[in-house]
Amino acid sequence: MSTTAPALLVLEDGTVYEGSAYGALGTRFGEAVFATGMTGYQETLTDPSYARQIVVQTAPHIGNTGVNDEDPESRRIWVAGYVVRDAARRPSNWRSTRSLDEELVDQDVVGIRDVDTRAVTRRLRTAGAMRAGVFSGEVASRPRAELLDEVLSQPTMEGSRLAEEVSTQEAYVVEPGDHGWSDEPLAVVAALDLGIKTMTPVRMAERGLRVHVLPASAGFAEIREVAPDGVFLSNGPGDPATAASQVELLRQVLDAGIPFFGICFGNQILGRALGFGTYKLPFGHRGINQPVMDHATGKVEITSQNHGFAVDAPVGETVTAPQERYGRVVVSHSSLNDGVVEGLRCLDLPAFSVQYHPEAAAGPHDSAHLFDRFVDLLIAPTTDSAATGGTPTDA
């Protein structure tokens, strides 16, 4: 370990957890959330959806496999702070190039170790995700009342607009020829980067799609410029209620009849584009072991998830979208843990979305077929069966 300096995790309800510094020394603020994955900590740290969040790992041993240059899901670590129980004293893996502690220091990420993460998780499950601060080094010796005041002065996740902060600033292209496909693409996709993970366009390129990744600020004209066969909206951080420009953009896509697929934040934006509301979950779904029911097939998929907001739509019935011009909509997937909406499909439009991560890096590959469904939709956009799991008239 780089240091044995003291550290504190302070929650907005006044709860304080003592530990030792992990990574850089200093102070960081964010929303405290817990992630249940037993592997994939490097992918978690570099997932842009965790921006402005302090991540508590429920798995007790973190850092065992070190860090490498192949597994990051974006250009940097995005978590605001990191909380672990037992940090590995040294990494042991043939792919490791450095320790996690070294990586946290290099990227100026303030963390805390030697914390009872079970107790923290139980607190968050009871009281809900809340504002928090990690204080390490000399600052941890300050009066706790002062530290709590600083935590309480921070903004909440509700009302936070973060996609533009994590998005690419320049458009780029992921070619199928670089991922085992012929140089000639099967179809072209415009993917709006709201916090996209590296593996998402790769999974599409592996299936023959040329993916133009565009900044979160891109408008409909920029999408038209790449002449896409379909549009994709990615995962990302923040409150979907703040994504008015992306909602309006998606309505233009739907009005033009362009096939659409969205995941995570993209699912919430589809919900809002159709006229449904969104709301904040008490403590969210974060991990790689989330059971989801596919209502079209009756099958259960174990999924990778990272979201704190959800779509407010009726489960178990076909309804006309509140924005009536989009026709009939059905909740295609729901959580078996708490019944939360995990997917939407339009019965009168070539559009569908899911709340979880079919690219699953790290995580199970139960849902990888959703990329195949998107390809089918692009190749034959007039047949709705690929998007709906049935005929256009199915309910």
Rank of each mutant, 00 (worst) to 15 (best):
T3L: 10
T4L: 10
A7V: 05
Y22L: 15
G26V: 11
V33E: 06
T36P: 03
G37P: 01
G37S: 15
G40E: 11
D47W: 02
Y50M: 08
A51S: 10
I54N: 07
A59F: 14
I62W: 05
G63T: 05
N68C: 14
I77P: 04
V79K: 05
R85P: 01
A88R: 02
P91A: 02
P91I: 06
W94L: 12
S96Y: 02
L100F: 05
L100R: 06
D101M: 03
V109L: 09
I112Y: 04
V115F: 07
R118L: 11
V120W: 11
R123Q: 13
R125K: 14
A129N: 11
E138F: 09
A140M: 10
R142E: 15
R142Q: 13
L162H: 03
A163E: 13
E165Y: 06
T168H: 07
E170R: 13
A171Q: 11
A171R: 14
D178C: 08
S182M: 13
S182Y: 08
D183P: 02
A187M: 03
V188G: 01
A190V: 03
L192P: 00
G195C: 08
I196A: 07
I196V: 13
T200Y: 00
R203K: 15
A205I: 01
G208Q: 06
L214D: 09
P215C: 08
A216W: 05
G219T: 10
F220S: 10
E222Q: 14
R224M: 09
V231Q: 09
F232R: 01
N235F: 02
A241M: 13
A244M: 10
S245W: 08
V247F: 00
V247L: 04
R251H: 01
R251A: 02
V253W: 06
C264Y: 06
N267R: 04
I269C: 02
F276Y: 13
G277D: 15
I288S: 14
Q290K: 11
P291Q: 09
S304G: 07
N306E: 11
A310K: 02
G316A: 08
P322K: 04
Q323G: 00
R325A: 04
V329N: 00
V329H: 00
V331I: 05
S334T: 14
L336K: 06
D338Y: 09
G339Y: 10
V340N: 06
V341Q: 02
V341S: 03
L347F: 06
L349Y: 00
V354T: 07
E359C: 02
E359Q: 07
A360L: 07
H365T: 14
H365I: 13
H369Q: 05
H369I: 09
F374L: 05
L377W: 04
A386M: 03
A387I: 00
P392M: 12
T393R: 11
A395S: 13
A395Y: 11
